[in-house]
Design a protein around this nucleic acid. Structure first.
Lengths: 193, 193, 193, 193
DNA sequence: AATGAATGAGCATTCATTCAT
DNA sequence: GATGAATGAATGCTCATTCAT
């Protein structure tokens, strides 16, 4: 099962897959190695420990998500349309890489994430907080602690993806409605007068 | 260290506490027994397995939350004010029982939850879905798949509590703003015309 | 195979035996447990690690040897007769507990001995150095760095026991000759005039 | 990092060095190869196994020591002066090649030494035993089992070197005293009349 | 009923050795 | 010849569960 990207990439892929079938903590490294089509010894040639492997998987996908989100801040666009783009990116990422999204957002990583991984995670938050702060200054996003608003929106998005993962089937129309509803979380016009 | 409620209650309390300090999966049963002030043997007299204990803790708190939420549907009140009451109940529950909330919503239980526990979980969803469906019929809640709307709202709430747990400090004013924003997720008046 | 002294004693006995058949480093803990007639898990109930077990065995026997040696310093006796008593004690200990002696003196312990164990070891040296210093003051033991003289005598004794272990058969007469020769290492009368 | 003597010599040097930093048993072959500046594969081209490498190192230095000792038996010299020369040779060897001496005398080799290596070891003993037997016939060395006397002397010498290695600092005067004391182990004149 | 000693399968990790390039 | 990636058996240690007292 070796891949074009080589053994290391095969291991990262296998790890993502099996960590999702159970959990990082419940998955023996032997299972990761098996899935990647290599021996345990080989896994340890590429990653010094199970923790290092977990961190590598986490960082890889957090960074990919961060890159996709960062790319959406287009110059002249309105906040609502920028939000719509970010929403689509986020939901699209979750659709394209359901295992990666589930691993990132639906598991507990506190026990093994190192500083670099936590930093990768923070970068997405920061992008979102910046967006909210600017939107508030422009009078398009409602008042309130920006981190709180981000937590609500991010939570709503995670809730959405989690529900789909649990079996909820949504049409494009549904998703457009979800986007509109989530934008209302931020929209200054939804603010009680 | 036995409690008023007896050994079983002491074990459930201890389990909730220690499952939060690490994770269900990372916590040896010996640690639960220790914390409860009993021996491992005794733990196994009250619960046939670690899984059974985990399920009991899960069900206990899911049911308590469900009861508090169900109690909020007052007869003549508007949907918005009912929502406000439910929001307060939910956030209040998380404030009163932070360990319970964290255990219920911030951990993965898939690997060990039995059917009964999953049902207990569904009951809260159902309460919420019923509320949304009725609100939609009454023309006060926006259109869209009710389960999707519930997922968004529930996700937003979890995101809020998670952020507080990660260190975000919020005033009562902030929480009122969070409630208003979350209501906008549902409010028909926030719907784009 | 449980012994009168209980599981812990059985483990210490088994450890001494198997550490001698190979080496501390070459002996899996499973082999120790097997020999003691218990499971690996039980071994770990009595000793937190293999290192701790190794240290416990080392300390136990070093202390027994130290006690036997310390008991030999009789009040009015001459240095030569005190030395003879210590020599007999030492050789007798090696004869009575060949495995213990071999473990203590013929293996490398540097990699795992803790401070307490090293202290137990030093106590024997100190007893010997004190003896030499007093003998020098009394004009019965030759001049020279006392630690150096102790190293020579201790080395000679270890060499003797090692040779017996390798198959050398010695009569009581031989041993008396060995004692006399070893005393010459210290005897002021053997000093070149 | 190849040496004048070629790859094989570089490997033997590297092995001696790293076997002393830890132990033969604790040293991965990869560390030996690294230190020698070659790959593991190359190491296995020169030595069929780790054991073979260990034996080669052992034999190499045992033979060098044996040669230096054997060279000391000068024709007309007295036994005491021959002994003095051998003592100096031995202590000098330990000073010139502390790693080699420590490897030979302060580690356990039983688990992997082959017959040839054991033979190399015996040859030194034989030289020493011959010396003692002749000295006894000449009436200059005390009575007693020659192998026993050799064991005492060899042990004393090892004890001396071990103590120096553990930090004991000795002047030339101290060493002369050590030599005199060690000779007393053999000297017929030290024998109790 | 309660205890806690005992069990042993299971896990992360290491390392001597092989072999395709 | 030389390389170093790959192998997989072996090791120290953990922990859910049982059971004699």
């Amino acid at each position: 099962m070796t891949r074009a990207g080589g053994t290391r990439a095969a291991l990262l892929d296998a790890a993502l897959a099996v960590f999702n079938e159970r959990t990082y903590g419940d998955t023996p490294v032997a299972v990761v190695a098996d899935r990647a089509g290599v021996s345990v010894g080989t896994l340890y040639r590429y990653f010094p420990s199970k923790e290092a492997l977990g961190n590598a998987v986490y960082r890889l996908w957090k960074q990919r998500l961060a890159e996709r989100l960062a790319a959406e801040r287009s110059a002249g666009a309105s906040y609502e349309s920028t939000f719509a783009a970010m929403f689509r990116t986020f939901v699209g990422f979750a659709a394209d890489h359901p295992e990666a999204f589930a691993f990132l957002e639906l598991q507990q990583h506190e026990s093994y994430l190192d500083v670099d991984s936590r930093t990768a995670s923070t970068s997405i938050d920061q992008t979102a907080v910046d967006f909210v702060v600017q939107g508030q200054r422009a009078g398009e996003i409602r008042a309130g602690d920006p981190r709180m608003l981000v937590a609500l929106v991010y939570g709503a998005l995670v809730g959405l993806v989690k529900a789909r993962r649990a079996g909820l089937r949504l049409t494009d129309e549904d998703l457009a409605a979800a986007r509109a509803a989530t934008w209302a979380l931020l929209d200054v016009r939804s603010q009680a007068e």
